[in-house]
């Protein structure tokens, strides 16, 4: 996969080729590809001259460094207690209905992946979710429909 090779090389040029460069490089892959494929991990290992097992071991430690295929937009709904109290379950259900997937799954067109995550740091404005790096707060069913509708149409 030539694109992955290019991407990894570019990231290594930017962040360096030491052990300390590993996380920034993996994070760079995520922001381009949304997940780190086996091919990408092998390529990082080659570029940084370390074992693929080490790259794998590091990547799988972090919940945002997904190693399974993900959609273009990764939705992470906060499941921690105060968001839960403010109606997180209904928000997840609305998302499941809109996207026609269950939590943990990716839409057929590979556009959205629906996940849950722990406290996002917006507890006073729950329920909250992230779509990639963007935070959305004080969610209601209507608001979620609007946001997702916008992503479906315009992104």
């Amino acid at each position: 996969m030539p694109e992955i090779k290019e991407l990894v090389k570019g990231l290594a040029d930017k962040h360096g080729r030491t052990r300390e460069s590993l996380l920034p490089i993996l994070q760079g892959i995520i922001s381009e590809e949304r997940f780190i494929s086996d091919a990408a991990m092998t390529e990082v290992a080659r570029e940084l001259d370390m074992s693929a097992a080490l790259v794998y071991g590091t990547a799988t430690f972090y919940s945002f460094l997904d190693t399974k295929p993900r959609g273009k937009y990764v939705i992470r709904v906060c499941r921690t207690i105060t968001c839960d109290m403010k109606g997180k379950k209904q928000i997840v259900k609305t998302l499941e209905d809109l996207l026609k997937v269950n939590v943990g799954e990716t839409t057929k067109d590979n556009k959205f992946t629906l996940l849950e995550t722990n406290c996002l740091g917006w507890c006073h404005k729950g329920p909250a979710m992230l779509i990639n790096d963007e935070a959305y707060t004080e969610l209601t069913e209507e608001k979620v429909s609007e946001i997702i509708g916008d992503y479906m149409k315009n992104k």
Partner: peptide, 20 residues
């Protein structure tokens, strides 16, 4: 990258060093 334990200071250093 989404790991609560990395707030613990020594885990945070490990993470800064590119490790688990």
């Amino acid at each position: 990258s989404g790991a609560y334990i990395c707030g613990e200071e020594s885990a945070l250093f490990e993470s800064m060093e590119g490790k688990r």
